[in-house]
Write a protein that binds this DNA or RNA. Structure first.
Length: 497
RNA sequence: GGCCCCUUCGUCUAGCGGCCUAGGAUGCCACCCUUUCAAGGUGGAGACACGGGUUCGAGUCCCGUAGGGGCUACCA
């Protein structure tokens, strides 16, 4: 049955090696988008056939990463499904059965070459020389029965061309003579990727294999194996990969966050994006925009919108330098468009982690002032932490913060002192009322707005840079705002005497 | 080395033979707005790797060269 007539089913099949790398996630995302676009299923399968590389707790980390990004999984080791188990080490019988089947059918053979022999061949600059390909079947069976260590290798055609179709690259052709007799089953009874993924993708009814382009060289091998089994092939899409920001080398070689040539920190693991204060929506948007584009010159879009338009055939075949600078912009776009209550919910734990006790009602008033200013969620501490510190402990900032450009301590004292009764007299303490009063005040004393507004900002927030002054004073309330201005005046006077 | 894939502004990309004096975004620069910081607005510099073909016509098709990436394990 041709794959195209089946339900779309794609999978992400990582090795359980711990934290999730953004490169793998990007590939997974394209598979996920494609499955969702076609109302199909997205499967998680753990490829733990290399026991040396398996890391405990990996499945949890993978699932957490997908949860955080909002990519839902239909079947997998954590939730089960109709085609389980979804962990390859629990499917060994299956691989052994099919490996032996291939031997019986004459498509594969036992190879008794020792690791030493193979090492020598490699040293001599040659690959495996197929020395057991024509080993007599009876002797092969006899040695296996005696327990002689061996692997099972695939009998690759010695001549001819293998042609395959890739959704992204079109037709690709390979000379069979260039390819080796790959190992299908290792001497420890575990399968290699080549065998395991085909057995599983067939058993799990995967309709489209989406994987990184580094698999392209083994594509002909896989095609031959599919053919030897006589199973209907899925369709293939070899996805481009992410390169380092300078375009040199695969990003996935990086095992953790690093600094690029401009000194900018470049996250690569999913949890690093999280702790850097990026929104999952922004990360997904960012990733989707590399190698694929939404169309209509639109750069900011959500999962659902991308899902409705995504197609593997539109994926750009070229690898991409990792455009990390764009993520900051995208993150600020998402921050600006966030629902204020939702943003408050996300900001709260960060303030608490910084040691503040968060009054939610207060936070909700502050958030709108922050939305256009945050680049990262983490910025909230630096920008608005002062709202959440204990007000009773507030001490005015030093003179160098209070005194504005072209002012001195005496003039600043005078400016603040003069502003006090005017602010005190305001019935309406709204930002606009304050601004009108203070603009008139500045004009009346022949000062620029900045001199007045800036001194008030410093007096109230304790910072040189802060959210807008009058909004800040409004949130503090007239009493607290004026108390702080008075404290600043007192501090300046104390410093002068 | 062999084999495979790729090649449009610094970067991410649009472009699927004429609509391209190559569009968008980001980053950078300037100006505007402005109480700081942002955000926003306007404008600017900035690319079809090179060489051959095919065609009336090529960024778009073909070949070669160069450059980049990958594979070449009893790892995935």
């Amino acid at each position: 049955m041709p794959a195209r007539d089946r339900t779309v089913r794609t999978r992400y099949a990582p090795s359980p090696t711990g934290p999730q790398h953004i490169g793998g996630i990007r590939s997974a995302l394209f598979g996920w988008l494609f499955a969702r676009r076609h109302a199909g299923q997205f499967v998680l399968r753990i490829e733990d056939t290399d026991q040396k590389r398996s890391v405990r707790g990996s499945v949890e980390q993978i699932v957490d990463s997908f949860d955080w990004l909002g990519l839902d999984i239909d079947e997998g080791p954590h939730i089960g499904g109709a085609f389980g188990p979804y962990v390859q080490s629990q499917r060994l019988d299956l691989y052994q059965h099919w490996a032996n089947w291939l031997v019986d059918q004459g498509h594969a053979y036992r190879c008794f070459a020792t690791p030493q022999e193979l090492a020598e061949l490699r040293k001599a600059g040659r690959g495996y020389d197929r020395r057991y390909r024509d080993f007599p079947a009876d002797r092969s069976a006899e040695q296996a029965a005696q327990g002689v260590a061996h692997v099972i290798r695939f009998k690759m055609p010695l001549a001819g061309t293998t042609r395959g179709s890739d959704l992204i690259r079109g037709e690709v052709a390979f000379d069979n003579a260039q390819l080796q007799d790959a190992v299908l089953l290792k001497s420890d009874g575990f399968p290699t990727y080549h065998l395991a993924h085909i057995v599983d993708d067939h058993a799990m009814r995967i309709s489209h294999i989406t994987r990184a382009v580094e698999w392209l060289p083994s594509f002909p091998l896989h095609l031959q194996i599919w053919q030897a089994f006589g199973w209907g092939k899925p369709q293939f899409a070899h996805l481009p990969v992410l390169l380092n920001p300078n375009g040199k080398g695969k990003l996935s070689k990086r095992k953790q966050q690093f600094a690029d040539s401009q000194g900018k920190s470049v996250p690569v693991l999913v949890h690093e994006f999280q702790s850097a204060g990026y929104l999952p929506e922004a990360v997904v948007n960012f990733l989707t925009n590399i190698g694929w584009n939404f169309g209509d010159d639109q750069e900011v879009f959500n999962r659902a919108e991308a899902m409705a338009r995504f197609d593997l055939q539109d994926v750009n075949p070229a690898n991409s330098a990792y455009p990390i600078a764009k993520l900051d912009w995208l993150n600020s776009q998402w921050l600006q468009r966030s629902d204020a209550d939702e943003l408050a919910r996300r900001l709260k734990p960060l303030l608490e982690a910084a040691g503040y006790e968060v009054n939610v009602a207060l936070l909700i008033k502050v958030v709108p002032l922050l939305q256009v200013r945050l680049k990262s969620l983490n910025d909230v501490v630096r920008m608005a932490g002062f709202f959440f510190a204990d007000w009773n402990d507030f001490t005015p900032p030093p003179a160098d913060i209070l005194v504005q450009r072209k002012q001195d301590e005496a003039s600043t004292t005078a400016i603040l002192r003069g502003a006090l009764p005017l602010l005190e007299a305001l019935e309406d303490f709204s930002p606009t009322a304050q601004q009108a009063a203070m603009t008139a005040y500045a004009a009346s004393i022949g000062q620029k707005n900045g001199a007045v507004f800036g001194s008030l900002r410093a007096a109230v927030s304790g910072q040189k840079v802060s959210p807008p002054t009058f909004e800040t004073m409004d949130i503090f309330g007239k009493a607290e705002a004026l108390r702080r201005v008075k404290l600043a005046v007192a501090a300046l006077e104390a410093a002068r005497s």
